[in-house]
Amino acid sequence: MAAAPQPSPHDCALQATNATAARSVLRFTATSEDRQIARLAAAAVALSAAEAAFPSPLPGVKPGVANIVVLLVLHRYGWRTAIWISLLRVLVSSLLIGSFMSPGFALSLAGASCSLAALGLSRLLPEAWFGPVTQSIFAALAHTAGQIALAYVWLIPHPGLAYFIPILAGAALLFGTVNGLICARLLRGHAAEAGMQLSAQSA
């Protein structure tokens, strides 16, 4: 996927080199972390573009596997980076699919924004008790709620839309749980790796 954003918008990327300040040259240096983030964003874009190719029984019912990437990023890099990955995912995949600035794009953006807000709130929960599955469920439900709300106020201002809520919310709960489990599994692998490194260092 060549769509990785080259000038990574991550904060660390902006480094005006002091040596060239006299000529006022602004140089953007991509750190290794930036490249990592670009890779992750590209993975999220690839997943959501692949997902768009699958037929869906109802607009809005999607596995949302790109959220696994967002969840992983939330755990490894923090909330701010997760916001970047999520919004880049929405933007770049809409450019790839050709839905940029279409109603579908607006719905996607509304869903992603609500989902990020839910993830932000979920970080307040004690980590020993609530893991990635909780976060994934919150994110999925918030995503669906955001989409339905926007669809209602903007696209389909009809009370009949409420009939779809159980289907959409049910799908969100199902896929949220599955994605959360996948994320938890991946994080466990990551934690085991990190644990090994730590024990190797202390040895």
Partner: peptide, 12 residues
């Protein structure tokens, strides 16, 4: 490390 923590079951 477990995949489903107690709170996850609660939320689900």
């Amino acid at each position: 490390c477990q995949l489903m923590r107690p709170g996850d079951w609660l939320v689900l």
